[in-house]
Structures are given as C-alpha cells and as structure tokens.
Design a protein around this nucleic acid. Sequence first.
DNA 1: TTAGGGTTAG
Length: 737
Amino acid sequence: MVFSPSFSLPISAPILHVLPDSDPPYNLLRCHPSLNLLSKCKNTQNLRQVHSHIIKTGLHNTQFALSKLVEFCVVSPFGDLSYALLVFESIEEPNQFIWNTIIRGHSLSSSPIRAIAYYVRMILSGMEPNSYTFPFLLKSCVKVAATHEGKQLHAQILKLGVDSDPFIHTSLINMYAQNGELDNARLIFDKSALRDAVSFTALITGYASRGCMDDARRLFDEIPIRDVVSWNAMISGYTQCGRFEEALTIFQEMQEANFPPNDSTMLTLLSACAHSGSLELGNWVRSWLEDHGRGSNLQLVNALIDMYSKCGDLDTARDLFNGINQRDVISWNVMIGGYSHMSHYKEALALFQIMLRSNIEPNDVTFLGVLPACAHLGALDLGKWIHAYIDKNFHNLTNISLWTSLIDMYAKCGNIEAAKQVFDNMESRNVASWNAMISGLAVHGHAHMALEFFSRMANEGFKPDDITFVGVLSACNHAGLLDLGRQYFNSMIRDYKISPKLHHYGCLIDLLGRAGLFDEAKTLIENMEMKPDGAIWGSLLGACRVHGRVELGEYVAEHLFELEPENPGAYVLLSNIYAGACRWDDVAGIRTKLNDQGMKKVPGCTSIEVDSVVHEFLVGDKVHPLSKDIYKMLNEVDRLLDLAGFVPDTSEVLYDMDEEWKEGALSHHSEKLAIAFGLISTKPGTTIRIVKNLRVCRNCHSATKLISMIFNREIIARDRNRFHHFKDGSCSCNDYW
DNA sequence: TTAGGGTTAG
C-alpha cells in the first residue's frame, strides 16, 4: 500500500470485536480514530486506506462506521458515489440512515432521478422512509423537473403524516414552485401554519422565476422575521427580472435596517452590476469585500471578473483572473464568456486554448462562451472539435442552449447541413432553437426552407417571437420575396400581436427599396412608431445606388449624415451613386470631404481558418509569414482570370478609395488574399470558407465566381449580411445581395 | 444515534 506523505494512519487504533447489527456504545464509535481520519481524506487513495483501516480494526461490523463511510463518499468532493454504492451493496440490511444517505448521494449526482429508484428499493425492502428521506427526494424532482414523481411523493408524505415537518413543507413548496406549479406551491404555503423565512423565501423565489416580482414583494413584506437569504432572494429576483434599480433599493433597505449582508449578498449584487453595467457599485462591492477580508474568496473573485468584463473593463477583469492562485472552471468560464460578450472573440479563443493546455476540463458553460466566438470568426474546425468533445464527454446532456449554440455556430460558419443535423438530433427544442435554424437558413439564402421551418414550428405548438420574425423577414429579404415579406410582416402584427421593431421594418424597407418601390418604402418610414435608424436609411441608400436614384440618394444621405456623422459608409455609398451617374466632380467632392474630416472607412478584413488556426487578412496585407507565396498565387489568379476574359468592375472605386485603391486596381482586396492563401494551403478540391467583415464588393463577387470555376473549388463566403456559396462559376445569392 | 428546506457563473 502506498502512503502519501501528508497522510498517515494511527499505529494503535482500538480493535473492536462486535457482532453485526449490534453497534457498541456510540461515544466509543463517534470519536474512533479511523472515523476521524475520514475528514482528512483528500483523494480516493486516502479513502481506500481508511476503509482498510476500518476493516482491520473491526469497525466494518458496525452500521455506524459504514454509515459514516458512505456519508463521506456521498458528500465530500473527494469521495465518489460508486464507491458508496459498493459499500452499500455489501451491507445486508442497511439502516434508515444509510438508505437516506444513498438517496441523498443520488440527489447530488449527475442523474438525480436515480434517487427515486433507490427510494422504491427502500420501500420494497421493508424499510420505512422518515422525514429526512423526502427533502432529498424532492430536491431530485426539482433538478430533473419531475413534477409527476413529486406529486406521488407528496401523496406518500400525506399518508405518512410528515407534512408538518418544516423541512418537508419547504421542500414541497420549492418542488411545486420550481416546476412551474405556483398555484400548488401557494396552496401548501397558505394551508399550513408553518411560516418561517425559509418557506416564504421558497415561494418568493418561485414568483421571481415567473417574473411576478410584485407578488414576491408582497410576500417579502409579510415575513415575520426576515433572514439574510430572504433579502438576497429579493435582490436576486429583481435582478433576474431586469429590475436593477429595485434590486439596489432592496439592498439599500437592507442597509438601512442594519441587516448585515453576507458573501451571497455581494454575489447577488455583483450579478446585478454585471447585468446593468453599474461599474460604480461594482467597485464599491470590491472595496467592501477587501475591507471585510473576503477579497481572495474564489467565488467572489469570479463574480468580480464577471462584473468587470460585462461592464466593459476587460483589463481589470483579466488582472483579477491572472491574480488567482487556483482557478476553477468558473474562473475560466467567466473570463472567456466576458471576452465573447464584449466581442473580443480572438481573445476568447486564445484563452480557451490556454485553458485546454492547462488541463482544465471545460463544461457546457465554457462552450456557451466559446461557440459564439467560433461563430463570429468562422472557426469551423474548432467548432467541430467542440461538437465532437460534447458527443464524447457529455452523455445525456439536455442543455438546449448548448445545442442551439452549436446550430448557430454551424450556420454562421457556413455549414448549414451540419446545423440542420444538430437540430434534427435534438431531443427537445425551444423557440431559440427554431429561431437559430430559421435565421441560419435565411442567411444562406434558403428562403423557402426557412419558411417551411416556420410553419413546422407553429404546427409543433411553438409560439414565434419577434426574433423568429427577424429570421423569417430576412429570409424573404435575402431571396427578394417581396410579396411574401409583406404578408409575413402583416401577419406578425395581426395574428401574432407582435409590434414591429426597427429590425422588422429594416427588412421590409430593404425589400421595397431593392424592388425600386421607393414611395411605399417612404410611406412605411413615415408611419413607423419610432425614428428610423442608420441601418434603415443605409439600406435605402444602397437601393438608390442599385436603381441609380441620385436625387433621392442625396435626400436619404442627408438623414444618414445627420444620424451618423462619423460613419464614412454613407459618404462612400453616395459617392458610388455619383460614380454610377458619371458625376465625377461630385465623387471628387466627397473624397475631399472625407479627407478633410479625417474619416477613414473601416478596413476590409477577411479571415480564413486552416488547420484550426484563424488567419486574418487586411487589404493589401503583407504581414503573413507566407506573404510571398500568397502574392505569387494572386498573380496566377489574376493571369487566369484575365485569360478567362474577366473585366474588373471599377464602378465602386471610391468604396475602396484609401488603402485599397492605392494598392493598385482591386486585386488585393482582403477576400482575394484569403482565397489565395486558401488555394495554396489546402488540398485541391477542398472547400474554402472565408469570413469578411464588410459586404463583398461587386468586383470580388464576379471574380470569386470565376475563381470557383477555374480552380474547381467551392468557396463559401460570409459577408456582413449573408452567405455566398460560389460553385462552378455562379453564386447561391443569384447576384442579389 | 450521525442528516434534511429557501439566495449564489449563462
């Protein structure tokens, strides 16, 4: 047997000779050295050593010692349930405590429903449950939303007459409240004379989870003697409902009442700060924690990191993260999630890679932070790796958000088929899953399939929300389905009672503009309940360019200049309109204006993932290590394009006025650099996937179509608005984008 | 004769 240096067994422990089921005096057992050693176990090895010791000293003949062993296995983070079960199965007639402990163990495990199975076994073996048995069982019912089983347990509780036990009473309220049956929870609460702060709080939490904070507040006011958890539950309830000011008011009331807050109060407050962006209060909490000597508590530091990153102070968040000695998975998750939340996607992925190298096991929350970063950067390989990791390591995972996040990732990374596969394999879905699928199909231009999913969704009893309609309308938009778009827009208002938001108007106005129906678009804008935003004027301006409407373009541009004076995009679009009308003086005028005001257009940037590494290219970029080879390939591409009779489209010159124009012609746009890199670094025939931060320009669009044919490559490009699948010389958008 | 209820990364 191997002894770890920090752990040694007592040499002379008393040997007990006892008969089974006849435990010796408890005072002798309770303080027996072997049992005291249990609390010092730090791993399974230690546990086995103590178990051997228990056997050597004869203690294994007592149910008391075995119950302590089983309890340790079940409760301690260094124990494990399977070991507890081994011991349990070796006991001929386990006592009530041991049965309860095994049930408790299952309620704490990853499959709490098994607690019920052991309860059934307990009854069948002839052992009666007691008032300790039910809180464990009811907790399991909460975890797996087993309302039906919970009700059966309720019947048993009434039959046994233990319903007046305060613990069972609160557990029942909690079970009903958490499973959405608030009326039943209330019934139990009202019928009983038991009214301590704990049962009040259980009901308050139920109301809070349903957004009924006014009911919660009434109950809170009725609590005879409040305790710290009831205060915390109120702060947390308001926070969850997005009523941050009221959350802070409760905290103020708490202070005025001289009620001392605890760590949980601070955790809850930090969560309120994170959600509402209250950096000032967050800083106050931080100094409170330092003043009270809680500044290095891991859970609190994690909450501080979360607060700072959500408030946009990523540097302070990272400093705190770096300062932690022993980070847990939550530390990593909040930092990665913070980067992702603030659109620092590259940092999110970089930190995730460090996490893996540090041998920290990621969990579902980690992936909820990483997958959106993959989606934005188009990091399909990493996304696929995560999918495989989940399949391998997380069986029976019922986290709908995670699967939905995978759908979104696949769709945004250009693999809509994989997105659909994930969707089809989901055991249960929610509105968000349908929304992800519908908008995924929409950006890929599969309008009819998106609309088909919309009908399926309604048929399966899901109620579409405003986000669903953004997907539906953008599906119509990307396919130019004007009549259908109008119909869905009207149906949204009439049949689903959803009032249109800017996004919905944006889709419809874009559709109308592209179809040249400017009068209808203008009327719609004038009748909107809110002021149009830059996106709406912008799409109209784009439509003016397509239809060569110079005067209207000037009128629309004026609105855009007023709304977004710093945005050079509007000037660029207007100059393209002038260029289309050969009004070169006006083109030059805008150019001067842009230069005078020192405005620079957002540089075009395209990324491509090769062998799990994301490579980024800016216009005319020469910093890539393989730059020479890339430009060699670029020359070859240009030569072949020329041979194929390609004539560059220079109608959008100003669009590329600054760096790109200076770099010469249009041949060094970032997407072309990325494609050239893709051509030299992947095997012939491999699909090339690229992601561009701006809309793809006309010239590159025509060039890419030809490249797909010349090199026999499928090229999937995501631009700011949608996907383009280039194949055999044509594009899935049918030149409509 | 050892235990059990309500708040606390998305």
